[in-house]
Design a protein around this nucleic acid. Sequence first.
RNA 1: GUACCCGUAGUUCAGCUGGAUAGAAUUCACGACUCCGACUCGUGCGGUCGCGCGUUCGAAUCGCGCCGGGUACACCA
Length: 563
Amino acid sequence: MELKTALSQKIAQAAEMDAAQAEQLLETPPDPKMGDAAFACFSLAKVLRKSPVMIAQELAEKIEKPEFVSRTEALGGYVNFFYDREFYAREMMRELQAAGDAWGRADIGAGKTVVIDYSSVNIAKPFHIGHLSSTAIGSALYKINKYLGYNVVGVNHLGDWGTQFGKLIAAYKMWGNDEEIARDSVSALLKLYVRFHEEAEKDESLNDIGRAWFKKIEEGDEEALRIFEWFKKLTLKEAKRVYTLLDVQFDSFAGESFYNDKIPAVLDELRAKNLLEKSEGAYVVHLEEEGLPPALILKSDGTTLYATRDLAAAEYRKKTYDFYKNLYVVAYQQSLHFKQIFAVLKKMGHEWAAGCEHVAFGMVSLDDGVMSTRKGKIVLLEDVLTKSVEKTRAIIEEKSPGLEDKDNVASDIGIGAVIFSTLSQSRIKDITFSFDRVLNFDGETGPYVQYTHTRCASVVRKHEKNDAGMDMSALLNDEAFAVLKMLNAFPNMLLMASEKNEPFYVTRYLIDLAQAFNKYYYEYRIIDEDVQKTNARAALACAVKNTLKRGLALLGIKAPEKM
RNA sequence: GUACCCGUAGUUCAGCUGGAUAGAAUUCACGACUCCGACUCGUGCGGUCGCGCGUUCGAAUCGCGCCGGGUACACCA
């Protein structure tokens, strides 16, 4: 329900100004006691050469009230509008009930494709909490954009290319043990990789052997490829286990190696457009005009780099998916890299480069410093999830021993808590990981939102269906009205989350909605003898339940009926 | 050295396309509810919004300069 547009037209009439301009000056007062909408008169003061206080008083009288406004009031330099709560409740409930569990769904994305590159696991590296941000943010954006009608393509841009894999195969050939690898999978591979680096410090010739194996991969050597594909399969198998737990999907696993045969075409294009220049033995694209350091495209030895591959990937994605937006959910360490890539694409004359965006996020570190895979200083994501589920399980045993399906509920809540905590601040901020913080279920957390959902679910279950109709007078109090206004904000909030690529808007919203509902729930009994009032209150609880469930689902979090 | 990002209650964070007394959560201290399903609700304590100057009727929010922290800057990805 969008009332501000209608209201701003009336204001524009009275103040003899542009409706769009009036809408810009229309805001929400800091305290609901002041009203539901407020028009700021300060900027008019200059034009009219009158004090804002006087303008506000005059306008308050002059403005023709739309049917949904019950009264206006001039306060300081503001004209405050109070909505007719009965009208508001009736219209909101009508909209909410018509939408059912699809509240907030939109079609603004119809016919447009959004490509999202996220998670992007590295072959032979364990899935640790450092990978959670990209995975959770990307997955949430995937679901949010889909809900808004976009066609979404989730890409897991596998880190499956580079000299490191030659080294890994070399290590495997020297010390590998098939049984151990079959049993320990990625951690066995990591062990081999770490051992290689240790031994290479003593014996430099090992690096040559590693390089030789990488060359074999590049040349398509059968044995090298077979081993590498095996390692890839093991890594993906582990990653997919985590993806299932987190409810994360991908449409493509085209990684770095996938673009190998597409690089020559990019190089040809760069040459044809006279962008490639020799510098210190290597080939670069100069970006002085853009205020950026040159982008290195080819090494002195003629081999390609990360940037080259990313250019090929961007062109491939445009050609294959004809994206409207092309998002890279990658840590902020790479922001210069992406600026350069986008600048080169623009220089190549690709206007679609404007649709490419780096969705940067902060880094995750530990109390005692940065994580290091090679040193084994990491926290595995699966360990975090397991601990969280175990803790939840213990709480359930204590608080609700009679609950059915304890295992699934424990898993929904435990895993949900981890995702929620990852998405509960703006993505650019750094995070110091601590078990205490992630495993804290008090306050603004996933379990709090899930708990509120089960409260609503319980009411909905208990409420007996009937045809008596709703008495909206039950929803006119401050608390219920605040809940209705929160519900009204949901669709717009989703649009903002998509526009800004900030899943955290959803997290924040869910907390606010849950708080508003709990306040209401505490003050008023929902089910009582008055059937019509009960119907109205239960319908509100049902709308809150649907919205909480939907919001959680968009973050990849389940909403159990009972807990 | 250069560029980008961050700096708001003890702590973790909102608010930053300028607007009314700067908000939560958490901790601590009280209190309510003990119910429609527990982790619920309320009150209190707690802030030179890093510092300074400027723009503006009005700045946590915009600009400039500092300070502190982080990240990145050519042959890794």
